[in-house]
Nucleic acid binder design. Structure first.
Lengths: 119, 119
DNA sequence: TTCATATTTCGACATAAATCGAAACGTGAG
DNA sequence: CTCACGTTTCGATTTATGTCGAAATATGAA
């Protein structure tokens, strides 16, 4: 994943997060850390019908904020911290005058297992 | 302006910024600093019809990201740095696991005149 | 192969967002 | 008062987004 966003990627990411269910979904995946969560577990946690959830997952994926890996029958989704950092980077650099802003907000997964974020 | 955002304000602000014209508009106002810009000047800079611009200005205002003051016949719009900081604060605190994030991105207007941001 | 499970895609619908000309509004000048 | 100016609101239209059941796809088990 690229670690800098341009205006277009930024709009895509902002739009992806600018929705009640998707913001909650992304936060859930952030909490879940590097292990991620299966679609079914997410649907249950957020009390969403599978088809609706799938729609939102696709939206966040398109924006590069989350990614997918298959684990047997389940599809595991994980938050993409690099993309989140890129988004914050763009906002602080381009929407705060560039001047008096904190250089870069840097975020890392609260990794609980052995796997690390290979984005 | 409140200096912490909750999920709802965050969604509103994200949605406001998640649009080509509005992101450009907000950036323009950030560059303009504390002096702000008149609606007409913005319309010209962004090459937008007045009515379209007005729609976007209202959207950003509703989200608390910009504010309005009258100066004779003109309406002057200025970026609301406090709101931007609140947004960044929410994102770093709630969407980065809270843990390994930079404490708070803090942004200040690149004030060129004597007035300061009284938000 | 046949079946159950996990998840996505499709289709139909409802709702919200964006666009922009024309008309209305507020403000100051003559 | 009347007029010009800067800006917003209105109205009509187009386009995009969100929702969710039902059907389709992919994986693994028996």
């Amino acid at each position: 994943m690229r670690d800098r966003f341009d205006a277009e990627s930024t709009i895509l990411a902002l739009g992806a997060l600018a929705h009640e269910n998707r913001l909650a979904l992304f936060r859930l995946l952030v909490q879940a850390g590097a292990e991620g969560m299966a679609a079914g577990a997410i649907a249950e946690a957020l009390a969403l019908p599978n088809s609706s959830l799938s729609f939102h997952l696709a939206h966040l994926t398109r924006a590069g904020l989350i990614s997918q890996t298959r684990q047997s029958r389940s599809l595991i989704y994980t938050a993409n911290y690099a993309a989140m950092n890129a988004l914050l980077g763009y906002l602080t650099e381009n929407c705060c005058g560039g001047a008096a802003c904190a250089p870069d907000a840097q975020c890392e997964p609260t990794s609980t297992t052995t796997q690390r974020n290979a984005a």
